[in-house]
Simulated assay, not measured.
Amino acid sequence: MREADVRFDTADHDFTNKPTASCSNKYDVRSVGTHEAGHVFGLKDIYGAHDNLTMCGSSILYSTRARTLAKGDVLGLRNIY
């Protein structure tokens, strides 16, 4: 891979860089960016009992938990590469 583009849907979603519990209906831009970078590197969305992973299929409003990779995300990348 030489290049990849990621587009954030700002028409339907609001993003913030400093999420707090008072940020109603906003997503952490760094968490979403890390998740989308996972797709660039070949990871797929994960559903079920793995909501602590960056590649969890549904983002959580004003949560920063996906800013870094969890162990399962790292293992998935190691499996690919």
Rank of each mutant, 00 (worst) to 15 (best):
H50R: 10
K18P: 00
G57I: 09
G33K: 01
S59W: 12
G33E: 01
A11P: 00
D5A: 14
D45I: 00
H39S: 07
D5M: 09
G57L: 11
F8V: 03
M1H: 11
V40H: 03
S31F: 00
D51Y: 09
H39P: 03
N17C: 08
C56Y: 15
Y27M: 04
Y47W: 15
M1Q: 11
T10G: 04
T16I: 06
N25E: 10
V29H: 01
A21N: 08
L43Q: 00
D51L: 02
D28K: 03
G48M: 07
T54P: 01
G57H: 09
A49N: 14
S59R: 14
Y27Q: 00
R2D: 12
R7Q: 15
G57N: 11
M1I: 12
I46K: 12
S31K: 01
Y47A: 11
H39W: 05
T16E: 07
C56K: 09
T34E: 04
C23H: 13
D5T: 14
V6K: 08
A21V: 13
R30G: 02
K18Y: 12
L43S: 01
D14A: 14
M1F: 11
F8R: 03
F41S: 04
E3P: 05
V32M: 03
Y47V: 07
L53Q: 08
N52L: 09
P19D: 03
A49H: 09
S59F: 10
V6N: 08
R30C: 10
S22D: 13
E36Q: 04
D5E: 12
L53I: 05
G48D: 03
D14T: 11
A21F: 10
K44E: 12
S58F: 05
T54G: 05
P19F: 00
K44P: 07
F15T: 03
G57V: 09
G57D: 07
F15E: 05
G38Q: 01
A21T: 11
T10I: 12
K44C: 07
H39C: 06
Y27D: 02
S22T: 12
A4P: 05
Y27W: 09
K26A: 05
K44L: 07
N17R: 10
K44Y: 06
R7W: 15
F41H: 06
N17W: 12
D9R: 07
T10A: 10
C56I: 05
D51N: 15
P19H: 03
D5R: 13
H50E: 12
H35G: 00
D14W: 10
L43W: 00
D14E: 10
H35N: 04
A37V: 15
S24H: 13
Y47P: 02
N25C: 08
H13E: 06
K26V: 02
G33P: 01
V29S: 03
